[in-house]
């Protein structure tokens, strides 16, 4: 059987929202992730860089404890992974549409 190499897309970015990735921003982030079929994971490089969370679940995202100023890494694997990373990065850059 032929091995299909999954493409992996990554982005490192600081979260500047007052609430970090907690209240409404966390909610928007999860909603955005769920629009893509790629598997999307999140790391909080400013705290415990080893811990991996599913970006499609609010509890995993909250458990990273992302506060304002924290730097996170978004990793997406799958067909629309590039678009997913782009959309999530844009969401953070827009400071969650505020």
């Amino acid at each position: 059987m032929e091995m299909v190499e999954q493409q992996v897309f990554e982005q490192i970015i600081a979260v500047e929202h007052e609430h970090g990735l907690h209240a409404r921003p966390a909610d928007l982030f999860v909603r955005c992730s769920n629009q893509f079929s790629a598997s999307i994971y999140l790391y909080n490089l400013s705290r415990n860089g080893e811990k991996k969370a599913n970006a499609k679940g609010i509890l995993g995202v909250l458990s990273l404890g992302v506060r304002k100023g924290d730097v996170i890494k978004i990793v997406a694997e799958g067909e629309d992974g590039a678009e997913a990373v782009e959309a999530l990065t844009a969401l953070i850059r827009s400071n969650f549409q505020e």
Partner: peptide, 16 residues
Amino acid sequence: AGIFHAHMSILQDPDL
């Protein structure tokens, strides 16, 4: 009211 949106997200959490 946004808090209840957050509640819906928790309820739909795939990991949970």
